[in-house]
Amino acid sequence: MRTLLRVGVTGAVAAATALTCGTTAQATPPGPGVTARLISQVTVGGTDYTVREITVPPGQATGWHYHGGPVYGYVKQGTLSHYHSDCASDGVYPKGTVVREPGGPSDVHLGRNLGDTPLVLEVLYVLPHGSAFSEDVPNPGCDFE
């Protein structure tokens, strides 16, 4: 249970969850080298519970996005710098910490790896059955991606 809770608390990443969605010409896809690996997935009722490991190389970002439901992440390695659509940092999450993203289009965010080691996140997605992990959106006007 402790491991599941640790895996379940996010950040974001959540932001790194933009990996599985299509992008439009104006959306901001994840940076080069951002990868995701499926760890487990189960559907209970109308809800998908999926755990993925997201890796963000140094100097890269997840792309601007939001999720269709809550996302929880655990920083396994590196440091996550997390930003909301007002361009302000809403947290810096070092190894061993957790971050939660509530989901929905009002929670547009971006995760960045500003460090010199890969950022590795264990992420739990709690989404309506069949939903994409995230929805890419255009940069809200910030001077960074």
Score class of each variant (00 low, 15 high):
114 L>W: 02
74 Y>Q: 07
89 S>H: 08
113 N>C: 14
66 Y>N: 04
101 E>H: 05
76 K>G: 05
89 S>P: 05
103 G>V: 00
99 V>E: 08
108 V>W: 01
68 G>V: 00
101 E>F: 06
88 A>M: 09
88 A>V: 07
89 S>E: 06
65 H>S: 12
110 L>S: 02
83 Y>H: 04
88 A>Y: 03
115 G>D: 15
90 D>F: 00
118 P>E: 10
85 S>K: 04
113 N>T: 15
60 Q>H: 14
119 L>E: 14
110 L>A: 10
77 Q>R: 03
85 S>E: 15
118 P>L: 13
67 H>E: 08
93 Y>S: 04
96 G>E: 13
81 S>F: 03
75 V>H: 04
80 L>H: 02
118 P>Q: 14
107 D>Y: 09
85 S>M: 05
88 A>S: 14
69 G>D: 10
68 G>K: 13
96 G>M: 03
102 P>N: 13
95 K>I: 01
115 G>Q: 11
73 G>F: 00
81 S>I: 00
91 G>D: 06
91 G>Y: 00
119 L>D: 10
72 Y>N: 09
84 H>N: 15
67 H>Q: 12
90 D>H: 03
76 K>P: 00
100 R>N: 09
68 G>E: 13
78 G>W: 01
69 G>R: 05
108 V>A: 09
117 T>P: 06
99 V>L: 03
118 P>W: 10
112 R>K: 15
81 S>R: 01
112 R>P: 08
112 R>Q: 15
102 P>M: 01
118 P>D: 13
108 V>Q: 11
102 P>C: 01
106 S>G: 12
69 G>E: 08
93 Y>K: 03
88 A>G: 06
116 D>T: 14
72 Y>T: 12
84 H>E: 15
104 G>E: 03
88 A>E: 12
93 Y>T: 02
115 G>F: 05
66 Y>A: 09
99 V>N: 06
90 D>E: 13
65 H>K: 12
100 R>E: 00
74 Y>L: 10
62 T>I: 11
81 S>P: 00
81 S>A: 11
116 D>Q: 12
118 P>M: 11
105 P>H: 09
73 G>C: 14
84 H>Q: 14
64 W>Q: 08
92 V>K: 01
65 H>T: 15
66 Y>L: 04
72 Y>P: 06
66 Y>I: 09
79 T>S: 12
62 T>L: 11
76 K>A: 13
118 P>K: 10
103 G>T: 03
61 A>E: 12
82 H>M: 04
70 P>R: 09
69 G>I: 06
67 H>L: 08
76 K>Q: 13
62 T>G: 15
102 P>G: 06
62 T>Q: 06
109 H>Y: 01
87 C>Q: 05
96 G>Y: 11
115 G>L: 07
111 G>Q: 04
117 T>R: 15
63 G>F: 07
77 Q>C: 00
106 S>A: 15
81 S>H: 07
74 Y>C: 02
71 V>S: 11
78 G>S: 04
91 G>K: 04
98 V>P: 01
